[in-house]
Write a protein that binds this DNA or RNA. Structure first.
Length: 114
DNA sequence: TGGGTGACAACGC
DNA sequence: AGCGTTGCCACCC
């Protein structure tokens, strides 16, 4: 990644998440070279909405969907994730026990839920 | 300069 | 798992 603006690096990091997999806001930030800026990822996501952006693969660090339960975005995201085979229950993605230790923390299992 | 807000995170219980 | 607190950062008014 050459000299892209922070926002562009964030978008690139999100586009890099493979289908069927997810990543936390903080994780995306670090991958974009912006440690500690999870909130900036959220802001960028709120403004920039591109058709090729897999925004639905970005979750909170605890694996929960960031939108208010039952909101438009919440339902959208849940549906999109399920369409990719991701197990979503009670507003949170279910990580398989096959992935060793990840006490509620996504980062360990990131990039390969299920 | 000061105060409020978020598609957040880490901790403690 | 749920909840409250604190820390954070980039804006906004």
């Amino acid at each position: 990644m050459a000299d892209l603006s922070p926002a562009e690096r964030i978008l690139a990091a999100i586009r890099a998440i493979p289908p069927g997999q997810v990543a936390g806001y903080g994780h995306v930030a670090r991958r974009a070279g912006l440690p500690g800026r999870a909130r900036m990822v959220a802001r960028v996501l709120r403004e920039h909405s591109a058709p090729d952006l897999p925004w639905h693969r970005v979750l909170r660090s605890d694996g929960k969907i960031a939108f208010p339960p039952n909101s438009k975005g919440y339902r959208e995201q849940t549906q999109r994730l399920r369409a990719e085979g991701v197990d979503v229950r009670a507003g949170r993605v279910r990580i398989a026990a096959s992935v060793p230790d990840l006490d509620g923390n996504l980062d360990a299992a990131l990039w390969r839920p299920r």
